[in-house]
Write a protein that binds this DNA or RNA. Structure first.
Length: 640
DNA sequence: GCGGATCAC
DNA sequence: TATGGTGATCCGC
């Protein structure tokens, strides 16, 4: 790539990259090892050729090729300069990162093998020996028979049929997968009550404590877990065991299906492992970044070190930090229930036959708004920002956003504020033909929060069996002490944004009061018949805790923890207990503040200083202050 | 803050 | 014959 290739070669090269791109994003997945990729890509290419989809992919590929040319030309310029300081900067950064290495935890990533297909096979055993896929238009997954033909997830159905004419396609049954996934979660929760669901068929566990308590090696523990899951649910899972989530995730793919891989938690072993690991195996490096890295000479994570002096100028600081961690094999060692992550957006979108009639488009927009309203109520959020997304018949995607005068969640409001954006787009692209329309709310304002409800005097003591999530065995007295003592910087940072939200909500209290009762009812109703897989259910209660609870209930009457502020008895549930105390404290503080002064600013200051309590405290929480180092959630590309 | 782009599943 | 939906992050402007 250093000297410009002759014209014919260049054309061939473009087609090669396009071919590669058309293979789809799941190329690195298992079950493809014995497949003739050359042949497969030829078939996909020919099946796609000439379609609008293909043309769009071609255009995207061309853009990427140009971007890579710019990267290479920048690199060439950089090579003329003295990069000693950049190299030193990288080395300093690497040294700093090295200090954060934590090899004390045992993290496991588990991944169900061809999950949807496996669940379907349970109901229809006759499928077992046939190639089949789940999903009609686009395959969500396929069994290992189908993979031998080159079929993979994300592939268009008709393309898959070209690869494998006998392929059977069956429709999605999301409810079935959700309930099967829940069965599995009820088993793995015994290995780590605070396990993290990464998706419907994946989870992270920290088994450090489990191994200690049961005097068992990580391999044995995971074999036992996998055996147990297989025996009780008939689903096979693969697992990776390593010192952090990033490595565990990579490892879970190495012995798929129905296998496990352990990477020893020793620095030399980890460094050697990363040195030869293709960049694409790392979660967060996709087809595009892989090509960009490849262009500058980085094929494996070990190569990152060789080119360390170029990376930040070529790809930015975030990518630099991310790649340095890849080189070192660093990743987060914390695992926490998915529901503890803060939601950032709620949205819905759908694809349909090409549509250009403005009236029809408005109907579609209206229907999308109705759909979004349901999701907003289900998740109990309002959006301060509303985003409209369209995909033209050419597959080009555009988004537009607006900030309505008030946070929205009702279909009427959503439609009202989305319509002008649509009209504007119609003006921008006269006679536009759409194949997709979507709406999304961001900058969310919560409308639930049990504390907010109670805060404003709305009824409702926590019932003993309300949320049983996150129940732990740690005793309450210890928590009281932490709670009433000093706060860390990190905590302040966390709850600083809270009073703003509170004031915002306060301003809207009036109009919301009428809505609460109905909303709560609605959200419960929607919850009941939900299950279309948009969300992950809260962690189940560990078996052990359930048993203890049962025996408690049989013998003595229910025990309670007394709230140190209001003295009222509370359910023995750390999470709800926390929430209750937070609520009591903030209510008390605000009353005090309001009494002292009617001045809003003053009240705000007092609130800020005196209620360091809104933050959810969890057992595992401590460091991560070094924000740059541990990514908050593994699936995110970078962190900040 | 906005819009495009990438990524994961 | 006709290539998905949900959610998150990063970058350049």
């Amino acid at each position: 790539m250093t000297s410009p290739p002759p014209e014919e070669e260049k054309v061939a090269d473009e087609h090669d990259t396009l071919r590669y791109s058309l293979l789809g994003p799941s190329l690195t997945k298992s079950g493809q090892d014995n497949v003739d990729q050359q042949k497969v890509s030829e078939i996909i290419y020919n099946a796609s050729k000439g379609s609008k989809y293909f043309e769009n992919e071609k255009s995207r590929d061309k853009n990427l090729t140009q971007k890579i040319e710019r990267i290479l030309s920048t690199k060439k310029q950089l090579e003329k300069l003295d990069l000693a300081s950049d190299r030193r900067k990288a080395d300093d950064f690497i040294a700093e990162l090295e200090l954060t290495r934590d090899l004390s935890q045992t993290i496991v990533h588990i991944d169900c093998d061809a999950f949807f297909a496996a669940v379907e096979e349970l109901d229809r055993p006759e499928l077992k020996d046939l190639p089949f896929a789940v999903g009609k238009g686009v395959l969500t997954t396929c069994n290992y028979h189908a993979r031998k033909f080159g079929c993979r997830s994300g592939m268009a159905g008709f393309v898959a049929k070209k690869l494998c004419p006998q392929l059977i396609q069956i429709p999605l049954n999301f409810d079935k997968y959700t309930s099967k996934a829940q069965e599995i979660r009820e088993l793995i929760v015994d290995y780590d009550p605070r396990f993290e669901s990464a998706s419907i068929d994946e989870a992270y566990l920290n088994i450090t404590e489990y191994c200690q308590k049961n005097d068992i090696s990580p391999e044995e523990a995971v074999e036992q877990l996998r055996r147990e899951v297989h025996e009780k649910t008939k689903i096979t899972i693969s697992a990776g065991i390593a010192a952090n989530a990033k490595l565990a995730k990579i490892c879970s793919n190495l012995n798929k299906p129905n296998g496990q891989f352990i990477l020893p938690s020793k620095r030399p072993a980890i460094m050697a492992f990363m040195r030869d690991l293709p960049t694409r195996k790392v979660n967060g490096i996709g087809r595009v970044f892989e090509r960009e890295l490849d262009a500058i000479g980085v094929k494996t994570c070990g190569d990152i070190y060789t080119y360390r002096q170029f990376i930040s100028k070529l790809f930015g600081e975030k990518a630099f930090a991310f790649l340095m961690q890849c080189y070192l094999g660093l990743g987060r060692t914390s695992v926490q229930p998915a529901e503890e992550y803060e939601r950032k957006s709620v949205g819905t979108e759908s694809t349909f036959g090409e549509m250009s009639d403005p009236t029809q488009l408005r109907e579609k927009l209206r229907a999308t708004a109705e759909e979004l309203e349901k999701d907003m109520i289900r998740t109990q959020f309002k959006g301060r920002t509303l985003c409209l997304k369209i995909k033209l018949h050419t597959y080009e995607v555009f988004t537009r956003q607006t900030i309505p005068p008030k946070a929205v969640y009702l279909a009427d409001d959503i439609y009202k504020f989305a319509l002008p954006m649509l009209s504007k787009l119609e003006h921008e692209f006269p006679g536009m033909k759409l194949r997709l329309l979507g709406l999304r709310c961001t900058h969310l304002a919560s409308m639930k929060k049990p504390d907010t409800m109670a805060f404003f005097g709305f009824k409702k003591r926590p019932t003993p069996d309300s949320p049983e999530v996150g129940e732990t065995m740690s005793p309450p007295p210890k928590r009281k002490v932490e709670l009433l003592s000093n706060t860390t910087e990190e905590e302040e940072e966390q709850w600083q944004k809270w009073p703003d939200e509170l004031l915002f909500e306060d301003a809207e209290r009036q109009e919301r009061e009428d809505e609460y009762q109905e909303l709560e009812f609605l959200s419960q109703e929607i919850d009941k018949r939900r299950h279309h897989g948009k969300e992950i259910l809260p962690n189940p209660t560990p078996k052990k805790v359930l048993e203890e609870k049962e025996s408690r209930e049989e013998s003595i009457e229910e025990e309670w923890w007394d709230c140190p502020i209001c003295n009222r008895p509370q359910a023995q549930d750390e999470r709800s207990f926390n929430e209750h105390i937070d609520l009591c404290l903030s209510r008390q503080t605000i009353r005090d503040a309001v009494q002292e002064s009617a001045d809003n600013d003053r009240a705000r200051v007092v609130v800020r200083e005196a209620t360091p309590t809104n933050k959810r405290r969890t057992r595992n929480e401590k460091r991560d202050k070094s924000g740059k180092v541990g990514d908050p959630k593994q699936r995110r590309l970078f962190f900040g």
